[in-house]
């Protein structure tokens, strides 16, 4: 009986220290057990914002292998824990509902997207690279050695990691592709 009565705020108003019912006496059980999702996260990972070149550091909170929060990292001498609207929207960027998670394929002259599994896609792309490379190979031009292909071009974004850029330049150059460009120029 006592506990049931205690659960009724009116009773707590009459017997407690908050008669007007505007504070301590009207708290619900859920309010008393409130905790932020950052406190219940499994781990925190330090990362860097993918948007502009200021390079603000971010803290990524993960719970059950899902990103639950991304906010500024106070340790950074550049951003001191702060973020801009885009950086603050990093969680939406990573968990966006319209983000693609499967390979999409459009056949030549096709009218809609089709599915394709990743390994087949990789294999098809490798074949096309070799086929185009063979068809457009130039040993020399104006009697000067060039050993290259002008048939394969690449336009890489500037949100690529240094390591990704490095493998791209290394592979493209070894394949003889020179028309390799990126957002740094446009």
């Amino acid at each position: 009986m006592k506990t049931w009565l205690d659960a009724w705020p009116v009773f707590r108003q009459l017997t407690g220290s908050d008669p007007s019912g505007r504070g301590e006496s009207v708290r619900s059980k859920r309010t008393d057990t409130l905790t932020p999702r950052t406190a219940t996260a499994d781990r925190v990972v330090q990362s860097v914002c993918p948007y502009c070149a200021v390079g603000c550091s971010q803290r990524v909170f993960v719970k059950d292998e899902q990103v639950v929060q991304i906010e500024g990292d106070p340790d950074s001498p550049i951003s001191r824990g702060r973020l801009c609207p885009k950086g603050a929207a990093s969680k939406s960027l990573v968990t966006s509902a319209t983000r693609q998670t499967t390979v999409r394929y459009r056949r030549p002259h096709g009218t809609e997207w089709e599915d394709l599994d990743l390994d087949t896609a990789m294999d098809m792309i490798a074949d096309r690279v070799l086929k185009t490379r063979r068809e457009t190979w130039q040993d020399e031009q104006d009697s000067k050695p060039v050993n290259r292909t002008m048939g394969i071009a690449s336009l890489g974004g500037a949100t690529l990691d240094n390591e990704e850029n490095y493998l791209m330049k290394k592979l493209y150059t070894a394949m003889g592709a020179v028309q390799v460009e990126n957002q740094a120029r446009i």
Binding site: T35, T38, P74, G87
Partner: peptide, 21 residues
Amino acid sequence: LCYDRLTDGLQPACASACPTE
């Protein structure tokens, strides 16, 4: 005022993000 963050001693989200304080 990010009541859940306050219970864990964290600054509210808007104050943490504001670039010019």
